[in-house]
Amino acid sequence: MKLHKESKGTILVATIAVAVLGFLAVYFLEIWSLIIIIPLLILYGLVFWFFRVPNRDIVDHKENVIAPVDGKVVMIKEVFEDEFLKEKAIQVSIFMSPLNVHICRYPVSGKVIYKKYHPGKYLVAWHEKSSTENERTTVAVESLTNHKVVFRQIAGYVARRIVFYCNEGDTSKAGHEFGFIKFGSRMDVFLPLDTEITCKIGDKTKGGIDVIAKMKE
């Protein structure tokens, strides 16, 4: 299983913690140490599972808006996007549980025209206000269909570290990685009002593969 590059620090800390706690459990509890060791090993395995990098065949897209993350669609609504677009847009929000792959991918192909990191709170990721009050990043892309699309990584109650690798002027390719969020979190995508939304609330998405919307040329 291939692991994401963001896993190195976390796995090192987890390995040390499991080794130390396991040693102490065996030293003080002897045979009863299994009560501690077995849950530790399960948690240790979940850390590796969280940072897995699945093999996915990413194809080229123009009009299609691709799911930027693995997760569950929790919101589709018309909102006013006041950071970059300064106008009404359709917001599609996808929540990621700690068991989902947490690689963040470009939802559309085009050119990166804006990026910004915002420190903030750590409300639970499915909270509506997390989009504007939590630690988050905002990226805007001028799509191949000549639309401006904004998408936002949002830290959740557990997630405390967001990384994004894109810069203004970069070429974005729908389905390809641009960042990572550690543990529970959310992605919001803001689309033009005339976009055809092809997903619905409750849908499970596979990042880089599933089409969640189509934009008019």
Rank of each mutant, 00 (worst) to 15 (best):
K2R: 14
K8T: 13
Y27S: 10
I31L: 09
I31W: 05
I38Q: 04
Y44Q: 05
Y44I: 09
G45M: 04
F48V: 06
W49R: 14
R52M: 08
D57W: 01
K62Q: 12
V65Q: 02
D70S: 06
V74D: 06
V74N: 02
M75P: 00
K77R: 14
F80K: 13
F84A: 07
V92I: 15
M96S: 01
S97Y: 05
S97F: 03
L99T: 13
L99G: 01
C104E: 14
R105W: 08
I113W: 01
P119A: 11
G120M: 05
G120P: 04
G120I: 04
G120T: 08
G120W: 03
Y122C: 01
V124M: 11
S131Q: 09
T132M: 09
E135R: 09
R136F: 06
T137Q: 03
V141F: 00
E142C: 05
L144F: 02
F151Q: 02
R152L: 03
I162Y: 00
I162H: 06
V163K: 14
Y165R: 13
Y165Q: 09
N167G: 09
G169R: 10
G169F: 11
D170K: 03
S172L: 06
K173H: 13
A174K: 06
E177P: 13
G179H: 02
I181G: 00
F183Q: 07
R186A: 06
R186F: 07
M187R: 01
M187D: 04
L191C: 07
P192C: 11
I201A: 03
K204M: 06
G207F: 01
D210P: 08
K216A: 05
